[in-house]
Design a protein around this nucleic acid. Structure first.
Lengths: 335, 335
DNA sequence: GCCACGGGCGAGAGCGCTCTCGGATCAACG
DNA sequence: CGTTGATCCGAGAGCGCTCTCGCCCGTGGC
């Protein structure tokens, strides 16, 4: 961590251009009120010296940091097992850099981390926070609210009654689920089962609600709780086959579980989609395209979701409320 | 981006504790030379006021930032299609937070981004950089070197003759490949083929070299170039079957391509592992465990790799050279 | 031809911290 | 009891920047 060559200061640029610091500052920050010939001289001095403003000094007085914290609360490894996170980050990153903001990444796993994050946010190092709070009992939101920073959540938060006063961006999980179910019905299927995700996450709840929107409160035996993992999908599928051998369609709350379900179906000699049609959710690429048969699934635009989160955060005027992005059914061979 | 409540300053703490700013600073920064009763009074004042040091002011004078840039050069979507990146990030994050450093994430896609990153690094916002430079003609390393920041690369850089003067952390790609090949030979296989990765990446080159270490310069017809994608794996597999229908084993340079190869083999009626044994690389979980049959593959400890990169960067004394992490063959059903 | 006015620029204070340096205090020693 | 030396603490300068304030000069109106 040895320090670099001493970098030129505003002072130095001012001296070279034969003006005052104030003038250089004005030019550098693009404020008007500096006549052209002078401004030009300053600009030349700036790049002759290779001047780059010292962000620390600037923040000290402006109290702005041009930096945003992205907080990922992930005690489990699930998020890391799929590429969601990376896509979202990319969307966020694009939007932030377009507005000259930096992205400070905070990954948390346990309570200690939460305290640390709380301190960091309270420390006023960043201008706002993007939060992926994935589980229902997560204490993080409170910590963040206490820090008093502008915040946008990724995914509908479970607290707060679902809306009002809290900014979030989410996919239309419920609508996507409805599309999936309607597609199965449109295929002439009659006994539809649903494998839910981990129900402590709002995405899972919303997808289940979508299923019920169309199916009514149908046979509760046709709904089995999974956990978003392939193993969970397998277990749920086995259970469903046992309970209701005549089922002819399955809607799984994500592709990973759908993949698990496919294996169990094959194991039981059911042909997909002939005997049983299967629809997933996410369009998680390395999985959805590689299963046998490839999955029909509900795609969400993850990168766009990230981008919009960042945009809402930077756009100070926006009302804090929910923003729901559309989903799209992608037809492949499984249904 | 409305600003928060004015936070207490050193001054305020000093006043409350009835000491000078200097003393508070000493206590806060854990320097000795402050007698216990006084120190205690200061500490009480600190948490009564909820004082958190202003990092900007601190950086201004210390020229340290306690922040590290993580630069991911990724013009393609490949990295985002697998969870590598996230795991590595997690390892890095753990190590950095253990040393009270922040992680500033810079994702780059094109030339413009490179210029921006160069400016950012030159701007002296961070104390060092971790770089994932994935392709051979990437201009990023030069930009970074010019910024004069301590840097550690993820994966062996292709330039610089492979070692000497540049710090990097990599998996033992070559050794892992040798293990994979020896395992196949140990199974009694005789006609081994290799599907390479994209050869503009050192990981692909090293794995190919490992294959050749064991096989000699064997039949060049038994080596087909892939690109690390499932589609590439399929194409390569088809080519290999055409060239040499009698092959009885395939080593693919990653699991994604191995999955593609499995599909083509099944399509051609070859049973795995009975007719053809298949070994992958990476142990990329959602894929390796879910293929049919599950993949035998070479595992690398990605998270540890990230952790070590961070550790080397923070550990100023370390010699800048390469650090190679061991790999491990994971046996599943495919070989 | 004088005064009021406004726009362009510089002087200077101050953001919150660290760190050097010198003054005060106290124990110990002659 | 005076002196030395070590130790603890405070005063103050200064990091590089922004931003307010006021001076100066040029212009236009009466």
């Amino acid at each position: 961590m040895t320090d670099t060559v001493p970098r030129p200061t505003l002072e130095a640029v001012a001296a070279r251009a034969g003006v005052s610091r104030a003038t250089v500052s004005r030019v550098v920050n693009g404020s008007d009120g500096v006549r052209e010939p002078l401004a030009e001289r300053v600009r030349r001095a700036v790049d002759e010296l290779g001047y780059v403003p010292n962000q620390a000094a600037r923040s000290l007085v402006t109290k702005r940091h041009d930096a945003i914290a992205v907080i990922v609360a992930e005690p489990e490894t699930r998020v890391f097992a799929d590429p969601f996170f990376a896509r979202q980050l990319r969307g966020i990153s694009k939007e932030l850099t377009a507005h000259d903001n930096q992205l400070v990444l905070l990954l948390t796993e346990d309570r200690d981390d939460h305290a640390r994050v709380g301190r960091y946010l309270a420390g006023g190092h960043v201008d706002g926070a993007l939060v992926f709070s994935l589980h229902i009992d997560d204490p993080l939101p409170q910590l963040i609210q206490r820090a008093g920073l502008p915040t946008v959540y990724g995914g509908r938060p479970d607290w707060n009654g679902g809306q009002g006063g809290v900014a979030y961006v989410d996919s239309d999980n419920r609508g996507g689920a409805r599309d999936a179910v309607r597609h199965l019905l449109g295929l002439g299927r009659e006994r539809l089962a649903h494998i839910t995700g981990a129900l402590d996450q709002t995405a899972a709840v919303d997808r289940l609600d979508g299923f019920r929107d169309v199916m009514g409160d149908a046979d509760p035996l046709l709904v089995a709780e999974g956990d978003f993992t392939p193993g969970g999908g397998e277990r749920a599928m086995r259970l469903l086959l046992e309970r209701c051998p005549s089922l002819d369609a399955v809607f799984a709350a994500n592709d990973l579980m759908a993949a698990g379900a496919l294996r169990v179906l094959r194991e039981h000699g059911r042909r997909v989609p002939d005997d049983v049609a299967v629809v997933g959710f996410d369009d998680m690429l390395p999985v959805a395209e590689q299963t046998d048969p490839p999955l029909t699934t509900v795609r969400q635009d993850i990168e766009e979701m990230g981008r919009l989160m960042a945009r809402r955060l930077l756009d100070d005027g926006a009302e804090p409320d929910g923003l729901i992005l559309p989903t799209m059914l992608v037809r492949r061979a499984s249904a």
